[in-house]
Amino acid sequence: MSSAPHMEAQHVNAITNAAVMIVEQHLGIEAKFSKPYVSGKQFLASDISVVMGVNGQLEGQIICTMEEKTARSIVGNMMGGMEISVLDDMGWSAIQEFGNWVAGRAASELAKAEAVIDISPPVINEGHSRFRMEKTFLTFPLSSAAGEVYLHVSITPSNRS
């Protein structure tokens, strides 16, 4: 049984605002978060996961998961409105970069909340996977015309800060 993780609301808001900004303002896709929930110390991810490490005054992970058709739709938008039938190497690179954009914007938003972080280069996981962690994750479902994107977030103040 997992209890709710101790994540500050301003930090969580910074990350969710960043995701909405990227999807709405840059990709031009209307998006809205629905109610977050506690995933606990393990969760089953959808087809594609973009895994990013957070270091600095906060530490942890941001894992962005989605179905393959959602990824194809996002990549199509990133490529200027192309129809993407299969994710090729360039498509995989694009979805990795999408995660980078969200995490990078989150870092900028977190800086406004006086939390300076760095992000590790994103790693992609393909296929349904069960992620297991020591710390508890909160999951934020983002609904959009491209499909559902789930942000699984576990960040806590660093012991070194």
Binding site: I22, M78, N100, A103, G104, A107, S108, A111, I119
Partner: peptide
């Protein structure tokens, strides 16, 4: 050209000699 556009990163880059800083996307 970075997704990491927070002020401290921009200042670091400019102090290190970068001529400009573009935030991705």
């Amino acid at each position: 050209c970075s997704a990491m556009g927070q002020q401290s990163m921009v200042i670091d880059a400019i102090q290190a000699g970068a001529k400009d800083f573009i935030v991705k996307p």
